[in-house]
Design a binder for these strands. Structure first.
Lengths: 200, 200
DNA sequence: TGAATAACTGAACAAGCGTTCAGATCAAAG
DNA sequence: CTTTGATCTGAACGCTTGTTCAGTTATTCA
């Protein structure tokens, strides 16, 4: 069964989702046709509309699911320890989570402008909520003297930009393992927030 | 005169360039039609082909010009001082140059996948050459003991990602001046590369 | 086996795409 | 005033787009 009769609001068929994710990431939303997606699934274009209301909903579903998973995954992991440990946990979590889903991350960052205004507002709010997780850690840590930050908001955006950047170059089986990348970036993040030298 | 008879290789008409730059940045290359660009210029679609060979060349020209200007601007500014001064100069230059041309930067980062393989190779090589400027500074500085870097290549990519990220949130007339942003980011970069505490 | 419903096809729709080109229009030069 | 060449129009080209839908096939359940 593709859907409950008369409703498209539930989860889009996994094969359709996977095909759209991969194609949107590779060629961009606007450059991919419904017929290409259908071809990847092994079906005619018309059949896609049993799984999704339209092309826009397909994009929105992908981005919404990604952001929901991101927030849920962090909430499931967010530690209670000292400020430095929290920041380290966030750093490692962000790198790992993003490296595990390069296509979804790519789409979530590059296709924002192809969302309708309503859909954009939803995704933007989720992105903001995620940023706030890090900003909270940095604010509390700065207040407690664990970090030295001239501007908490800018530090938040700078750290996220730096960490997300890993996705642009990391390739599985490359020179460095994901563990080693985490390690190296954690050291750079620690320095950027003025958290003192590396403990021996 | 739009062009020398029989050749499209020279500089694309400025009005066409500007219209394409703005539209590509706002909606994406694939989502913008030649008719939209023509409408912005105040001309019929056919007239665009007096200024550009085809849509792909229009995109390539924009990206190529941007990268050429980026490299030329750095070469015109690159200082000779100590390693820390060089890194500071690069940091400030990168932020300033990118904040001055947000549309071109956006296109150069987002539309790489819409280039033909040949055109992509050209742009990619220029991007690599720019990265090498920073990597040289970091390598020399690390060797001289001015920086503490576990991995020079990763530090290069991390710093560039962090700095380019400014473009995603900076708006003229906002909370912070470009000068102040440079200042704050320079402190974070200094910390990330292990260049010691802020001098009083 | 037969009935019901899910899953899908294949053709059609109007609209828009990049690109070409014969001809109109315009500006400058002789 | 005529000629020349740049500049641009407007229509046309073949093709692709997202989306719909009547009709066919496959699967499930009694």
């Amino acid at each position: 069964m593709a859907r409950k009769t008369g409703s498209h609001s539930e989860i889009t068929g996994p094969k359709v989702r996977d095909a759209a994710l991969s194609l949107f990431a590779r060629h961009g939303f606007a450059a991919v046709s419904m017929r290409q997606i259908a071809g990847e699934v092994g079906v005619q274009a018309g059949a896609l509309y049993l799984y999704t209301k339209d092309k826009q909903s397909l994009l929105f579903d992908l981005m919404k699911t990604h952001m929901d998973e991101l927030l849920a995954a962090w909430d499931a992991v967010a530690p209670m320890g000292d400020h430095l440990a929290q920041l380290e946990a966030f750093t490692r979590f962000h790198i790992r989570f993003h490296l595990d889903r390069p296509d979804a991350v790519f789409i979530a960052y590059m296709e924002l402008r192809n969302l309708t205004p309503d859909n954009f507002a939803v995704i933007e709010a989720l992105r903001r909520r995620y940023e706030d997780k890090l900003e909270g850690i940095l604010r509390d840590g700065a207040q407690a003297g664990a970090f030295t930050l001239p501007d908490t908001k800018l530090a938040t955006l700078a750290v996220i930009a730096m960490l997300t950047g890993v996705n642009t170059w990391y390739r599985e089986g490359g020179r460095l393992s994901a563990d080693r990348v985490e390690e190296i970036y954690w050291n750079m993040v620690r320095g950027a927030v003025g958290a003192g030298p590396i403990p021996s």
